[in-house]
Every structure is written in structure tokens, then in C-alpha cells.
Simulated scan of single mutants.
Amino acid sequence: MNGNARRTTSNVVQTEALANRRDDSVEYVGFRIDGQAVVLNLSEHQRLTPDRSLDLVNHSPTGYEWGYAGSGPAQLACGLLLDYYNDAQVAREHYIAFRNRVISQLECDGPAACWHLTGEEIDAAMATITDDVVALPDGGGPSPSLPENWRTVTRPDRRVFQRADRDHYIVLGEGTDGWLAVLCSQGDRAYPAPLASRTVSGDADVDRAVRALVDESNDLIEPPEGEC
């Protein structure tokens, strides 16, 4: 699959979500109580918790954050998009770009020491997001050679493997003497941080090197019971 096809598919899904957005006025507010981040959906008089978004991405099970590009803001971005559009694919594909564009800029300022984000502002931001789509598993199915908590992702210039239950990735690219496989994690960083790597010669078993990094990742953070 080429990059243009990936973006075209993403844009179609994004356009459908915008077309199906809520007609009523929606507003979210964020503030702190004893230092703890709290986000409310004012329209529904409900507190927005990470629980639902954690089924899609697991960046910050301890809670939301904002004001920078890290794991807590990533969880909030996914949670907000999922709550507002009620579309898992849109939330999963666009939450990183939405975090970078919107959530990282939120500040608790003014007399009320809080931030406000309306549905119109969410729509306006999403209308400008066309790239930076998060890699999704091809067809949502597991790779036959990897544990079930790992997926194979299509990229035009390299092979990428993505852990479904934690923010771990393996990127396989051409190195100076063969292949370089790198295990990395987004974590609290704006860019992925390498955790481990394998240098594979041209005639070596690349799949075995990838599987070794997969096992290393699973040993670092065990997947939930029944997913491996």
C-alpha cells in the first residue's frame, strides 16, 4: 500500500466523522483538583475518564494531562476524539496529530484556572489535519509469525511492527551492512525513544531478529492476560 492510499483512506474516514459530528453544542473543560487533572464534558455533565480510550491506546492509564506532547496528553487527545466523534478509527488514527496541534497547547489560565474546548474548535482543528496518521494494523489482524498482541503495519519505505496493548514499535530499515531493527517507545517524548536494536546481515534471518525484539518488549511489559 502506498502512502497516498493511506492518506486518502484516512481523509475519507475523517470527512465522514466531520459530517456526522454532533449538531448540539459540545464543550469540554479541564482543570485541576489537588494537582489532579480533571476533564468534564459540560454538555453531558459527565467526567471524561481514560477508561474507554484505553481500549484503543494505552499511553497513560493513570490519567490525562495537557500542555505538552507526552503520554498523558496523548491519552486525552484519544479520549476527547473518541467521546466527541464516537468513532474509534478516527480517534485511533488522528489522536497524535490532534495532541500535537491542540492538546499540547492547552493551558489552565484565566480567573477560573481552566481551559475550554468546544466542538466547533475540535472540528476546525480536525479539518486541518491531513497527515501524521498513526499507523494502524493492516485489516486489524495479527501477524501469523508474531504474538497476538503485535500487528504488522504497512509503510511505503519500511516494515513496522506495532504492539497493540502498549506504545511499543519495531521499525525495520536498511542499515549500512544489512538490516537494522529498532524497538522504540513514544512514552513521554515528542519522538520515539529507542529501547533496543538488532543489526541483521543481508543473509541472516530478519524475522528471527524481529521476533527477538518482540519477546524483549513483551518481557519489559507483560500484555494483559489472554492477549499473548
Rank of each mutant, 00 (worst) to 15 (best):
S71F: 02
R47G: 05
T49A: 12
A69W: 03
Y68T: 10
G35H: 04
V90M: 15
L82M: 08
V57G: 00
L40M: 15
L42Q: 13
L40N: 06
V90L: 15
A91E: 09
Y84H: 09
N86W: 05
A91G: 09
N58V: 11
L56R: 05
A69C: 13
L48F: 05
L40V: 11
Y95Q: 04
F98E: 04
N86T: 09
E93I: 13
N58T: 12
V57E: 04
G70H: 04
D83E: 12
L54I: 07
E93T: 09
N58A: 11
L80F: 02
Y95K: 05
E93A: 11
P73D: 11
G63I: 09
R47Q: 15
C78H: 05
Q36N: 10
S71P: 00
W66Q: 01
A37R: 06
N58F: 02
Q75Y: 02
L56W: 05
L42M: 14
L54S: 03
E93P: 00
L81R: 01
T49Q: 09
G63K: 08
E93W: 07
D34E: 14
Q75R: 02
L56S: 07
G35Q: 04
T62I: 13
Y85T: 02
A37F: 10
A88V: 13
A74F: 10
P61T: 04
Y95E: 05
L82Y: 06
Q36A: 13
T62C: 09
V90Y: 00
R47Y: 10
G72V: 01
N58D: 08
P61R: 06
V90A: 11
Q36I: 14
D83K: 01
A69F: 07
L76P: 00
D83R: 02
Q36H: 10
D34H: 11
R92Y: 14
N58W: 06
L42I: 07
P73S: 12
F98S: 04
G67C: 10
H59S: 06
H45I: 09
I96E: 12
W66I: 00
D51G: 07
A37W: 07
Q46V: 14
N41D: 15
A88E: 15
D55Y: 10
R92W: 12
P50H: 05
L48S: 03
Q46E: 15
V38K: 10
I96A: 08
A88W: 07
I96T: 08
E44V: 06
L42A: 09
G70Y: 06
A97P: 05
L42G: 00
S53F: 00
G63W: 05
E65P: 00
V39Q: 02
L81D: 02
E93V: 12
C78L: 12
P61F: 08
Y95F: 15
A91P: 08
L40E: 12
Y68P: 00
G72F: 01
H59K: 04
H59G: 00
A74E: 08
L42K: 11
S53I: 02
D51N: 13
T62W: 14
G72I: 02
L80Q: 01
